[in-house]
């Protein structure tokens, strides 16, 4: 009987030891497999993951490593994307400068080679000058935008009567509207309201949006309004022009994005991205609604900063 019991105990112990040994061995194998995968991650393959069974003793360790790898990878990806888009930008820019430059030199060469004389020559010189000015304007815009993009622009907040200032900006555009046969409706409140804002930034935003209506909108009517409510300043610029197609709409604030119809024609593709950057700089919001062939509505919202809080 004693022998039997002893035998039983020994047998059971043997089984337990065997099971433990097997368990140890399996864990070791799993750790070794994990180690090779971690080596591969260390060698730069951030897409590699440790895959384990939920019940495995190394599960929580592996899950943690995965989490770290995923985080690192996401950050790395952001960097790479920024780099890639800068490279794209460089190519795109050289392209955008080359075309108007080619055209400009074309006119000058024609003059120099004597293809044109007299009055036509004068005309050519004028065209060339205009083109050069356009190019200068483009380069200026580009410079401004680069400054914005890199976060180097410093915002100077000043106390101004916002209604008066808005009226001032828009009224400067009236001759242009009239020249292009555009009816206009401007509504800005009469009262005084002093706020703290970067004057040049606000002017740039409105100018760019209005310029856009003129160059791309082909509108016959434009409505500009400014009002203050709910501690916010709201601007609305609405036109009845060609509108923006649904496929273009989500991208219009991206840098160098040009709607298909604008390819090769006037426009830097920077105007709206400057607007977007400036609006962001002023802590405002911009939204756009557009229906093809019906018109476009830009809606701007800025926080109302009372003068006491100036920098």
């Amino acid at each position: 009987m004693v022998f039997f019991v002893c035998g039983m105990i020994i047998t059971i112990l043997c089984f337990v030891i065997a099971a433990l040994a097997f368990y140890l061995y399996r864990t070791k194998v799993q750790l070794m497999e994990a180690s090779t995968i971690v080596d591969e991650i260390a060698n730069g393959n951030m897409n590699r993951r440790l895959i384990v069974s939920k019940t495995s003793p190394v599960a929580s360790l592996c899950y943690k490593i995965n989490e770290i790898v995923i985080q690192t990878k996401n950050e790395l990806f952001k960097h790479q994307q920024a780099e890639r888009s800068y490279r794209q930008l460089a190519t795109s820019l050289s392209h955008d400068i080359r075309t108007p430059l080619a055209s400009l030199t074309g006119y000058l060469e024609a003059i120099q080679l004597g293809y044109v004389t007299g009055k036509e020559k004068e005309q050519y010189i004028e065209i060339a000058l205009n083109k050069a000015l356009d190019l200068k304007y483009y380069v200026d815009t580009l410079f401004e935008w680069l400054k914005l993009e890199s976060g180097e622009r410093i915002y100077h907040y000043e106390n101004i009567d916002i209604h008066e200032y808005a009226r001032e900006i828009v009224s400067e555009w009236i001759p242009q509207f009239e020249k292009n046969d555009i009816c206009y409706d401007i509504s800005v409140p009469e009262n005084e309201l002093f706020v703290s804002i970067d004057k040049t930034a606000l002017k740039r935003i409105l100018d760019n949006l209005l310029q856009n209506v003129l160059t791309h909108g082909h509108a016959t009517f434009i409505k500009v309004s400014e009002e203050e409510n709910d501690n916010k300043m709201a601007f609305e610029i609405q036109d009845n022009g060609v509108g923006i197609s649904e496929t273009d709409l989500p991208h219009i604030f991206e840098r160098l994005y040009k709607c298909n119809t604008a390819r090769g024609t006037k426009g830097s593709g920077l105007g709206l991205s400057i607007v977007a950057e400036l609006v962001k700089g002023l802590h405002g919001e911009i939204t756009v609604k557009s229906i093809k062939e019906k018109g476009t509505l830009f809606f701007l919202l800025f926080p109302l900063l009372v003068p006491e809080k100036q920098d």
């Binding site: 080359r98 055209s103 400009l104 074309g106 060469e109 024609a110 390819r263 090769g264 006037k266």
Partner: peptide
């Protein structure tokens, strides 16, 4: 440049790229 000038003056198009 000459080609660009021809495109603009003779063929009246701005829709090109160099």
């Amino acid at each position: 440049s000459l080609a660009a000038q021809v495109l603009e003056r003779v063929l009246h198009t701005n829709n090109y790229t160099a």
